Structure formats: structure tokens, C-alpha cells
Amino acid sequence: MTGSATIYHNPRCNTSRTALKLIEESGAVPNVIRYLDTPPTHDELRTLLADAGLEPRQAVRHRESIYKDLGLADADAETLIAAMVQHPILIERPIVVTEKGTVLARPAEKVLTVL
């Protein structure tokens, strides 16, 4: 593939690193957004999730302690999005956007569907 791919990336995450490697190996030019440092806005996150066909509950990291601390188990979609924007560690990663679509690349090989 030629072109570009935007990856919402956490360099400490093995799955995210693997997805980035697959993007690079495909020939795409990665635009790396370290979402912990530069989180998406509320509207950007809502759009990313919609484009990936995901509900907020499908893209929130349930195992993070902040998830339990904030009592998000029964939260509605808008509350989850607001929590993910305020605490980006709650955003499941990596999310990859290309001209072919948007995907939550878990497992990392799912990135191949948009490359």
C-alpha cells in the first residue's frame, strides 16, 4: 500500500507497536498520534468510534483502575466518551485510520483490513 495511515498509538503497548510495524511494512506512511499526550477531542473520538463501527463500551479499557474508580460499569455512551477524553488511558488502542476505513486494531493484524 502507498498512502498514509494515522495510528492512535501508545508506544508502551505491544499491540500498538505491532500494528505500527505492520503499517510501516505495508509501505504506508504512518502519522503517529501519541494519544496519551494528545488525546482526541470529544467530537473526534465520537467520529473515530462511529467510523470504526464501535460503541464507546467496545473501545474503553475496562481493566484500567480509573474505570472502576470512576464507576463506569453502568455509564452511558456520552459519559464513557467524556471519561475517555479526560482520561485517555481509557481509550483502547491502537485505532488506525486510512482512506480505506477506521479500525480498532486488536489484534494488531486487524490493521491489515484498512491497509
Rank of each mutant, 00 (worst) to 15 (best):
H42P: 01
T102H: 06
V97H: 05
R61D: 12
R34D: 11
A19Q: 05
A73D: 14
G27T: 05
R17P: 10
T98A: 09
V97Q: 13
S4R: 14
A28T: 06
M84Q: 05
A73G: 11
R63K: 15
Y35Q: 07
M84S: 10
V96M: 08
L70D: 11
D76Y: 04
A75I: 03
C13Y: 04
L49Q: 04
I7P: 02
Y8V: 01
I91E: 01
V103K: 10
T18M: 12
A108P: 02
I33V: 15
T47L: 13
L48P: 00
E24K: 15
R17K: 13
R34K: 14
A5G: 04
T79A: 15
N10I: 02
L20S: 10
V85K: 08
V85S: 13
G53H: 08
G53K: 08
A50N: 12
C13A: 07
L54H: 04
V32M: 02
Q86A: 15
V29F: 00
D43M: 03
L70R: 10
K21G: 12
R46E: 14
Q58T: 01
E78A: 14
P107A: 06
H62S: 12
K68F: 01
E44P: 01
V32N: 03
C13R: 02
T79E: 11
P88E: 11
K100G: 05
V97D: 07
L70A: 07
A59E: 13
P88D: 06
L36G: 09
N31G: 03
L80E: 10
T41Y: 13
P107K: 00
A28N: 09
T15Q: 11
C13L: 06
L49V: 06
A52N: 11
T15S: 14
G71A: 10
D43K: 12
D69P: 00
S65D: 15
G3Q: 12
L104G: 04
L48D: 01
L45A: 03
V97K: 14
P40A: 10
H42N: 14
